[in-house]
Each structure stands twice: as C-alpha cells, then as structure tokens.
C-alpha cells in the first residue's frame, strides 16, 4: 500500500496558506486585520499568500469601507473548501500509512 504524496494539495504546501484556509473554513468570513493578528504574520506576507489562494480560486475577496478605513473580508469558495477537505484526507492517509510501517 503506497499512498503518493502527490495527493497533498500543492497550494497548501505553505503552512500559512493552510492556516488561512482553516480559519476561512471555520468561519463564514474573516477580515484582513483579524487574520493578521491571529496568525501573527506581516501585512506583506499575508497579502501575498491571500493572493495565491485567490488565484487558485479557493477564496474570494469582499472589499468594503468601515467609515474611511478599508475593510477587506475573505471567504472560502466551495472549491476551496473541497480542496481543503481533500488535503486533510490525504494527510490522514499519510499518517495512517506511516503508522502501519
């Protein structure tokens, strides 16, 4: 029995992307600043990973204004949620396989 590592989603190879996705799966929407606080990452770092996930079609962006301050919210798409679930399944299988050894 050999489950290939290819089953793991390349988009989630980076830990921060995986973390962003877990937050967006657990919550309907999450805003940029709360996300930044929660993950303790820099603006630029977070923005580039969000861009990456957006390019994959895993998340959508909602831009609005709170007074004068821009308030950007992110939401996981159904494609993104599906991919996240597959990624978790693959992780589970890998762990089980290692246990068997």
């Amino acid at each position: 029995m050999n489950i290939p590592f290819e089953k793991l989603d390349k988009a989630f190879e980076n830990r921060i992307r995986l973390q962003i996705m877990s937050v967006l799966v657990a919550n309907q929407r999450y805003d940029f600043n709360s996300l930044k606080e929660l993950l303790a990452v820099t603006d630029g770092n977070l923005a580039s990973h969000l861009k990456g996930l957006e390019k994959e079609g895993y998340i959508t962006v909602h831009k609005s204004y709170l007074g004068r301050k821009p308030n950007t919210n992110y939401e996981a798409t159904s494609k993104g949620k599906e991919a996240f679930k597959h990624h978790l399944d693959a992780m589970e299988q890998l762990i089980n396989q290692q246990k068997g050894k």
């Binding site: 830990r15 995986l18 973390q19 877990s22 978790l88």
Partner: peptide, 23 residues
C-alpha cells in the same frame, strides 16, 4: 519520519486555529 512530524504539526495548527478563530 520527518514528514510525519510535519503533518502532525500541520494538523495541530489547523485544529488550534479553527478553534481560536471562531471561539
């Protein structure tokens, strides 16, 4: 073994974030 450790860390961080972000 190296990968297993990494995957387990990933899972731990997912679990903690899902809880910390919503509650």
């Amino acid at each position: 073994m190296e990968e297993k450790k990494e995957i387990q860390d990933d899972i731990a961080s997912i679990r903690s974030l899902m809880e910390r972000s919503s509650k």
